[in-house]
Nucleic acid binder design. Structure first.
Length: 248
DNA sequence: GCGACAG
DNA sequence: ATCTTGTCGC
């Protein structure tokens, strides 16, 4: 079973390298330059939830919240069948297709509710080949995207070391952060203390059409709790959906 | 060489 | 991703 997957991985690596060329690491929107993000009214979040013994059927969820109040404007939930296995470093091939479909549906039925930026559960440029799920979704949808991972991916020398833990301990207050740089010095993301009540940081990186500093600043303003509200709502609502549907 | 490895 | 309730503390 390892051989066919190795071939698939090679194909995926080529595709990631190709799509990587389209990632924009700049602020392309006016609201991104504004100190208080004036002009930003809608932020989106996506997530997939699974049932315990099943890793191919999932609930794909898209939510759109108002900014800055974080009220739910739109919610879409759908059971989907995933075609690709989970392989660390290739999340996009597994999760992006159903999420892109959800965005496409929104564009067709309520284009006025299209989010101006999308929060993605997972990494963007903080990735082995600088092309995580947030970049994947960003490039294919051409929407500004921010990657927010709850756990540290081991990328080019960035690991859960004693040094890393010391940096986490130094994050005194909500909004504090430190850079995640490769051995060569390139900053691929930032560890952000997103709320006062949680010492564990979230790992923020650029998905598409946004700078890292703007992504971190925006993430901070969207956090009522540790996880940015758009992702948190997508997560809560998708498992709620599964819970009620599973009992049948 | 072995293990580590977003969701 | 998922397995899982209450409980202690600010």
């Amino acid at each position: 079973m390892a051989a066919p997957e190795a071939e698939l991985v090679l194909k995926w690596e080529r595709e990631q390298a190709h799509l990587r060329e389209s990632v924009k690491e700049e602020d392309t929107e006016d609201w991104q330059r504004s100190p208080d993000f004036s002009g930003l009214e809608r932020v989106g979040g996506v997530d997939l939830s699974f049932i315990k013994g099943d890793d191919i059927n999932a609930c794909a969820h898209l939510v759109v919240l108002t900014y800055p109040h974080m009220k739910v404007l739109y919610e879409d939930c759908k059971m989907v069948t995933l075609n690709a296995p989970y392989v660390a470093g290739f999340l996009g091939f597994r999760e992006a297709p159903p999420l892109l479909q959800a965005l496409e549906k929104l564009k067709n039925i309520q284009p006025n509710l299209m989010p101006q930026v999308l929060f993605v559960d997972g990494n963007g440029l903080f990735h082995y080949r600088e092309f995580g799920l947030a970049c994947h979704l960003g490039v294919l949808s051409d929407l500004p995207c921010v990657g927010v991972a709850k756990n540290l991916l081991h990328v080019e020398g960035v690991v859960r070391s004693e040094e890393h833990q010391l940096q986490i301990n130094a994050l005194q207050k909500s909004g504090d952060s430190f850079s995640l740089a490769t051995a060569s010095g390139r900053v691929l993301g930032k560890a952000l203390r997103s709320s006062q009540s949680s010492i564990k940081p979230v790992y923020v990186s650029v998905g598409h059409r946004i700078t890292l500093d703007t992504a971190v600043r925006l993430t901070h303003t969207c956090c009522l709790y540790r996880v940015p509200e758009p992702i948190r709502q997508a997560d809560i609502r998708s498992r709620e959906y599964l819970r009620c549907r599973d009992i049948t």
